[in-house]
């Protein structure tokens, strides 16, 4: 699995992805780790199929005993179906995830790890130096959903927002935004259900100072591309599955 350090000042943001060992037919995912001295946080650590690769990558940076926290933006299998295995690797860890998904996510196996439900309005998490904010992103696409914002590193881990479906081995960062749009359009229109929720999120995120926006699939956005994304997303009509159905019934 490829790894890229996207921030390194006092603590690190590390991104893992583009796994060449990943079995065919499962969607490619980006996993993140914040290594902050004796404490590390894993963000959307991924599915069962990539667990071995992830564990190896993570262990290069931290002893498993120092992975104190895990974040799951929502309940999807590509986000957190590996939980039953992390439960054995890091039994002392805390899992921060939307409160509404507790009874569902526990189906992946969560015997020892402590489930800490994030309230709908969001909350904060302090590691050693890193102070992180869980920013509400409900209905984008999951009905209980959070992003992670780091005001010092100016990184927003945006989960499925900003995701793109791309061929294997694509670059880490968006290079040509206009060209990238076509890889994102269907994903956002079909997976995101609510225009109201989308516009509410755009307003909230516009207030944040963001250098890098890091989605869970596809490429990361940096600099001016972050604003380009927000503008594009605001103008996009989502929830098209319903409309398509209505027109095909007509």
């Amino acid at each position: 699995m490829k790894e890229t350090i996207i921030y390194d000042e006092g603590y690190q943001w590390i991104m893992f992805g583009r796994d060449p060992d990943k079995p065919e037919g499962i969607i490619d995912t980006n996993q993140f780790m914040i290594k902050d001295g004796t404490r590390s946080l894993l963000l959307d650590p991924g599915g069962i199929e990539i667990f071995s690769s992830m564990l190896a990558c993570v262990t290069r940076h931290s002893d498993p005993s120092e992975i104190t926290d895990i974040f799951a933006s929502h309940q999807d299998p590509d986000i957190i179906s590996s939980l039953g295995l992390w439960d054995k690797a890091t039994p002392h860890a805390k899992l921060h995830s939307p409160w509404i998904w507790e009874g569902f996510i526990r189906h992946f196996g969560c015997e020892k790890i402590q489930y800490c439900g994030i309230p709908d309005e969001g909350s904060e998490l302090e590691l050693n130096q890193a102070r992180l904010q869980f920013i509400p992103a409900h209905y984008l696409h999951s009905s209980g959903n959070f992003n992670v914002y780091d005001p010092k590193a100016k990184i927003l881990m945006s989960g499925d927002i900003g995701a793109a479906l791309e061929p294997h081995g694509s670059p880490m960062f968006v290079e040509d935004f206009d060209e990238h749009v076509q890889k994102m359009t269907m994903f956002h229109q079909r997976w995101m259900p609510s225009n109201r929720a989308k516009n509410d999120w755009v307003q909230r995120v516009r207030k944040l100072d963001i250098k890098i926006m890091a989605p869970q699939h596809g490429r990361l956005f940096k600099g001016a591309d972050v604003k380009r994304f927000l503008d594009w997303f605001e103008a996009l009509e989502v929830g098209t599955g319903v409309k398509d159905l209505a027109s095909s019934n007509a």
Binding site: F51, S52, S53, L55, A56, T59, G84, L85, K88, A89
Partner: peptide
């Protein structure tokens, strides 16, 4: 789980 841990160790 044990198999997957061993695989990770070999990686």
């Amino acid at each position: 789980a044990s198999e997957r841990f061993l695989h990770a160790a070999s990686l």
